[in-house]
Amino acid sequence: MQAIVERCAQEAWGAEVVAVLSNKADASGLAWAAQRGIATAAIDHKSFSSREGFDEALAQAIDQHAPDLVVLAGFMRILTAGFVEHYQGRLLNIHPSLLPAFPGLHTHRKAIEAGCVVAGATVHFVTADLDHGPIVAQAVVPVLPNDDEDSLAARVLVGEHRIYPQAVRWFLEGRLQVQGCRVRQLDGEPQSLML
């Protein structure tokens, strides 16, 4: 989230991050955003008896800001099909693996245990299927022989901070076209980054 806010300002995208929301009131991103004058809200998922109830409240909070794009960054809740449908085509996520490999949690451990020689991160449009959807961009890093989860995660994070702001900018500038399960960058810019 911070990388997106900073790149938006540095590169003068002609857009702004209008709000930062979290399901955790103590999320450090809320304080960081508030210090920069960005609207914030916390909606505790534990206050709801169902996923649908939480997602409805979350959507209401988001819709108050009328965003062109909803960006998930560090949001670790599974969203309902209704929520995803409400934002279809304007809901992006980043996942710390080279999807479709290793959806879900513990991606770095899974990559190491599987003997992968590369790992990375994927920006994708969100669909109702967990960690699936048309891929916008991927960052690829080597898995080194002495890697543990933390060292691999640190290198992947460098890639995440580069590809996620770029993917958001492409979307906002109308430079992405979804064709079935594929996303095409209309200027021909590379959609993969090797680190």
Results as ranks from 00 to 15, higher is better:
residue 67 P to H: 03
residue 69 L to M: 09
residue 69 L to E: 09
residue 70 V to W: 04
residue 70 V to Q: 05
residue 71 V to C: 11
residue 72 L to S: 08
residue 73 A to R: 10
residue 73 A to Q: 09
residue 75 F to C: 12
residue 76 M to C: 01
residue 78 I to H: 11
residue 78 I to T: 11
residue 78 I to L: 06
residue 79 L to D: 01
residue 81 A to E: 12
residue 85 E to L: 03
residue 86 H to G: 08
residue 87 Y to Q: 06
residue 88 Q to I: 08
residue 91 L to V: 10
residue 91 L to A: 09
residue 93 N to T: 05
residue 94 I to V: 06
residue 94 I to F: 00
residue 94 I to G: 00
residue 96 P to T: 08
residue 96 P to Y: 09
residue 97 S to Q: 05
residue 98 L to V: 00
residue 99 L to C: 11
residue 100 P to L: 08
residue 100 P to S: 10
residue 101 A to C: 10
residue 101 A to V: 00
residue 102 F to G: 05
residue 102 F to I: 08
residue 102 F to K: 02
residue 103 P to C: 12
residue 103 P to Y: 09
residue 103 P to W: 11
residue 105 L to N: 01
residue 107 T to S: 10
residue 108 H to S: 01
residue 109 R to V: 13
residue 110 K to D: 10
residue 112 I to N: 03
residue 112 I to R: 04
residue 117 V to D: 03
residue 118 V to W: 02
residue 120 G to D: 03
residue 120 G to A: 11
residue 121 A to L: 01
residue 122 T to R: 04
residue 123 V to Y: 07
residue 132 H to R: 15
residue 133 G to D: 01
residue 135 I to V: 15
residue 136 V to C: 12
residue 137 A to V: 14
residue 137 A to S: 15
residue 137 A to H: 14
residue 139 A to T: 11
residue 139 A to E: 12
residue 140 V to N: 07
residue 144 L to N: 13
residue 148 D to S: 09
residue 154 A to F: 10
residue 155 R to N: 14
residue 157 L to G: 08
residue 159 G to K: 03
